[in-house]
Design a protein around this nucleic acid. Structure first.
Lengths: 187, 187
DNA sequence: CCTGAATACATCGGAGGCAAGGTATCACGA
DNA sequence: TCGTGATACCTTGCCTCCGATGTATTCAGG
């Protein structure tokens, strides 16, 4: 997850660790901030694996910075993960959001569409938070307002995302259409 | 998280591990299924901590079952966690959903409302996935449809939840009998 | 009668991530 | 001049949880 997001941010431009940390905090951190003790060892691991390189720069404001850039292997690795995301990246909302944040890096519309289709497949299948044997329970089955809220929110989210997925897929799979029209779903 | 959900399910009725596993899978698992290697050690830990007891029953269908029930300490612990949830339970959607699933166990409407207010406070504060320095970037700042989708979905979700939070808070804090489902709390 | 599937519990190794605690540099105000 | 706060990087120890694997039991189908 983190590893993926690091590759995603660095795909655009070289960054130093501190900057990376702030971007990661914005992307996933409003929900779950990442810790120093997570980030720096991860950078080291990626470096050891040959996915990024470090370039020491004299401090601009304070301490010296390590500018991080992806190696060709690193760039290839991001693309691979975008093309063939683990199932968790399709089903877990946080990871899925991270995936969406960088999906534009995949150049082929066909490949982008294939990823969206996987998410569509996941969202389209019936699901429930609670079951009575084989019968999925729905909002109306509950007295308490909190479980009802759970369903209300989940249903609304799913509906919005399904609409967006269908619209965007239509755009991506249109014969010659440019892709800029898909954003207008803000209702 | 898992620990919390186990306490929540057992608060209602004694269950055996396998049943618990299925319920946990439905609650959190459509997103991220839990593994055996997580559940059983966790049960053991909770038992050691004196929060639940085991009652061995001869197998109904197959192997013998360990019926699990909360001790008074276990019940108290769930209520404590509902009353004073860690910050992560307020900000992380998965955990927040788990919290909502069991919030009815808190008997006082005032205490329930206090928890919802914390979530309201979190959702009401401005947030963005991406920043340009101090300026939060919005959907219109992006060309690519995927980042736009990110905003579309997140905004819709937040809006739905805020509406629900405000409605439910109004019900909970109304002086007389709360309307709709919120009133069915058998104190 | 045998096999496979579902039920039911358990252990082990390891990865990912966090909190707490460092080390330094620079700017600014008191 | 001294402290504070922001910038910037790093290490250690811990905990949660996962994946793989193992052990029984029961029932249905061939």
């Amino acid at each position: 997850m983190l590893e993926f997001a690091i590759l995603g941010f660095l795909y655009d431009e070289p960054l130093h660790g501190y900057d990376l940390r702030k971007r990661l905090a914005a992307l996933t951190g409003h929900v779950r901030p990442i810790a120093d003790g997570t980030l720096y060892p991860m950078i080291k691991r990626l470096e050891t694996a040959g996915l990024l390189t470090r370039d020491l720069q004299p401090g601009q404001i304070a301490a010296p910075r390590h500018m991080l850039s992806l190696t060709p292997a690193g760039r290839a690795e991001l693309l691979r993960r975008l093309r063939e995301p683990d199932e968790l990246f399709i089903t877990d909302e946080n990871r899925w959001f991270a995936l969406l944040a960088f999906l534009r890096h995949l150049e082929s519309h066909t490949e982008q569409a294939a990823v969206l289709r996987r998410r569509l497949g996941f969202l389209a299948q019936p699901a429930s938070f609670f079951w009575d044997g084989d019968r999925p329970l729905r909002a109306a089955d509950f007295d308490d307002p909190f479980r009802r809220g759970l369903f209300t929110i989940a249903t609304a989210t799913t509906r919005t995302e399904l609409r967006w997925l269908r619209d965007t897929l239509a755009d991506l799979e249109a014969p010659g259409a440019p892709k800029s029209a898909a954003g207008d779903v803000t209702t």
